[in-house]
């Protein structure tokens, strides 16, 4: 019985992961379309406002003193993610409108993987070092072949 529950939990988690990816793809396309209506920066602004309001609804129950105090104790450079977020939505809006969703997502994934290989190799962000391997090289080459096929197709 417990096994069935554990399996169900795992299936749910896998479905959740896939759904998260699907929603992200839809969000990328929708944001780009919004960008075509109002402009890419304006779209990034709206996306972040809507995300803020919706996020506020989800966390409203735990929006207490503890949270505020923890936030005050947080190093301020950890609050800069949102600055990057605006850049990300702006660039993605430009790219998706020009290159289509699949190629754009493929490019983002490939460059993310490449950067994380470099970051791992040199131990950026005080993460443990992880040397670049032959397997990773082959993996990156595969993604680049995939991109070429996408461009050709």
């Amino acid at each position: 019985m417990q096994n069935i529950i554990a399996n169900n939990k795992r299936t749910m988690a896998i479905a959740g992961g896939i759904l998260a990816g699907m929603l992200t793809a839809v969000a990328i396309r929708v944001n780009a379309s919004l960008g075509e209506y109002v402009g890419v920066l304006e779209s990034a602004f709206i996306v972040h406002v809507v995300g803020t309001i919706f996020g506020l609804l989800l966390i409203s129950r735990s929006l207490n003193k503890i949270f505020i105090n923890r936030l005050k104790a947080t190093p301020k450079h950890l609050l800069t993610g949102g600055l990057l977020g605006v850049g990300i939505v702006v660039i993605s809006n430009i790219i998706v409108s020009k290159l289509g969703t699949t190629l754009s997502v493929g490019l983002f994934i490939t460059s993310m993987l490449t950067f994380s290989c470099i970051a791992d190799h040199f131990g950026f962000f005080s993460l443990p070092k992880f040397r670049f391997s032959k397997q990773r090289l082959i993996g990156l080459l595969c993604t680049i072949i995939g991109l070429i096929l996408l461009i050709q197709g």
Partner: peptide, 22 residues
Amino acid sequence: LGTKVGSLKSSFINHLVGALFA
């Protein structure tokens, strides 16, 4: 940031800072 305040709150802050920046 998620390790300090939780992932969902971290995402909320991310959006809030982004909205203010934009």
